[in-house]
Design a protein around this nucleic acid. Sequence first.
DNA 1: TTGAAAGCGCTAACAC
DNA 2: GTGTTAGCGCTTTCAA
Lengths: 336, 336
Amino acid sequence: MATLYDVARLAAVSPKTVSRVINEPNRVTEETRARVTSVIKKLDYHPNAIAASLKRQCTDIIGFVVPYGSDFVFQDPNMMEQLRGAHDLLTTEGYEILISAPVYKKDTLNEINRLVKHRNVDGVILYPSFGVDQVVQEFSEKNFYYVTLGLCFEDQQTNFIDINLTPGVYAAAKYLISLGHHHIGLINKPSNFFMLGKDDCLRGYQTALQEAGIDYQNNLVFEGDFTFEGGYQAFQRLKELNPDLSAVICSSDPMAYGAIKAVADAGLKINRDIDVISGDNLPLTHKLYPYLSSIHNPSYEQGKQAGKMIMEVIRSGQKIPGVTLNAEFVIRGKLL
Amino acid sequence: MATLYDVARLAAVSPKTVSRVINEPNRVTEETRARVTSVIKKLDYHPNAIAASLKRQCTDIIGFVVPYGSDFVFQDPNMMEQLRGAHDLLTTEGYEILISAPVYKKDTLNEINRLVKHRNVDGVILYPSFGVDQVVQEFSEKNFYYVTLGLCFEDQQTNFIDINLTPGVYAAAKYLISLGHHHIGLINKPSNFFMLGKDDCLRGYQTALQEAGIDYQNNLVFEGDFTFEGGYQAFQRLKELNPDLSAVICSSDPMAYGAIKAVADAGLKINRDIDVISGDNLPLTHKLYPYLSSIHNPSYEQGKQAGKMIMEVIRSGQKIPGVTLNAEFVIRGKLL
DNA sequence: TTGAAAGCGCTAACAC
DNA sequence: GTGTTAGCGCTTTCAA
């Protein structure tokens, strides 16, 4: 492989001039630029990114670290959307994305530390999880760069893009009530995942009921675990305990699909016996049930903004105020 | 950030000794190792991966390049499975994965070249696509390392992991015939994607029909484009042209779900009016219709083996004979 | 078992 | 507008 020096020699210029032709071409006369360029072509020269990284002290690579094991991550439509958002923004801005989902969840913190401290990446986009608060704390002190997809500790003010589902769930419940439903189930987010301030679904649900003068009932709310199976079981229990159940709000797409299957297995029919509102409205999945009204979870936008924010964090060397995106409610199809 | 030299100075050893403690600890006496280790801890020293990369001439990063635009890639369950397979294998072997899906398809070749020639990655896992054959050709000559997920040119003998759907489709058709079906539709792979030797579905289908003495009919075979919408439209046309249609084989999951929706929209019922065999049997999606028999596409295994192969290619500096994985047929649920 | 010196390929200062 | 020099932080001969 030809090096910068080979080019310089053959073009009869200094190494720095070659470097300039590559990195700041308008600071070189057209003549020398042409000469150097032709030698570059002739030698099939390609700048060595590693050497440049060493000198520049940055790699133009952003790490995307997910703490739930690869089988979960690559099968979760939400994460794919966040990843897609981050990817789209960062690649158009000249960054690469390094994706890391430790096989064992417990390796996550090591992995984050390794990536960042070994200088493999210029910064990381992180998922909240147990222990990440300490990592983030350390990063803050040592000026390593991160942005989190959601809150990592109670009073986090900066470097996060969070999503608030309350407005979406509120509007969904409100809508169902306006259609005459009184027994509305909620398949809620799991409580055993690490998520701060995440009673957002419940809050929206409760507020809507309250405003309509409907009493809140414990046995109309069950948790899923974000999976198909979790949604399936949650619906079964809901129906078991509430024979009058006439509508269900699901807080994520995979759980909605589980619930839909449970509906069918119970011999019921959606849009006739029961109304189901699905969870994420992600393009990857919502087309499977395009007739369902849905809470729109702006995961793609979240990923995109996280990409933008990590760039800004790196550029400025400063912390950036966190951003919260609101979910919306999308009405579709024929409800009762 | 502390450097190797800082550690060496404080531990009163040479830089090389520190390097040894990190990279080949058993070639250092226990005593010095302990001393050095404690200094490493004390200074919170982390080796700089970039500097090591520059010297070692490798980054321990593998590129995963997909040529279909990010909106396609991150929404295709097959690609996610391949990515997951490659990721699982490579991360446990100490490699990182850099994922790259150029926003514009036409940038793909540049992207591959850039990643490899700039030495950002030690090797790449590639998707076949228009023009990749030339890239691969050049890589062969210049000893850059690659493995392809499928064949990239007619007589490719090495450095690929391919999947042959023929046995799966054959078995599926055979099974349907054994159940008494005579009008079996095939929603085939698209022909406008770059895929070599990819009449594998059709071959399996035709062979099964032939063995059963059933005439092949052109209007029982339609292409999808790997998407939900494609499957939907393909089924509609199939049913339109073949009122007697009683079974459909889909060559991918997303197309199967499109077909399933078209079935419902036509007022028909699966397992009563029509049998549907889904395409990929991927964990990400097949649970949505767990009662459907399916052609099992070993995408995860393909990704995993591609990961293994690229490692071997890099390690040996040699080309490796290609591998073809066979799809199987999985019987489930109650068919007619 | 350990150390000295050279250099991987590039870029940032600073000179001209 | 261009060139010279030094050095990013590590590893790799080779010698002790």
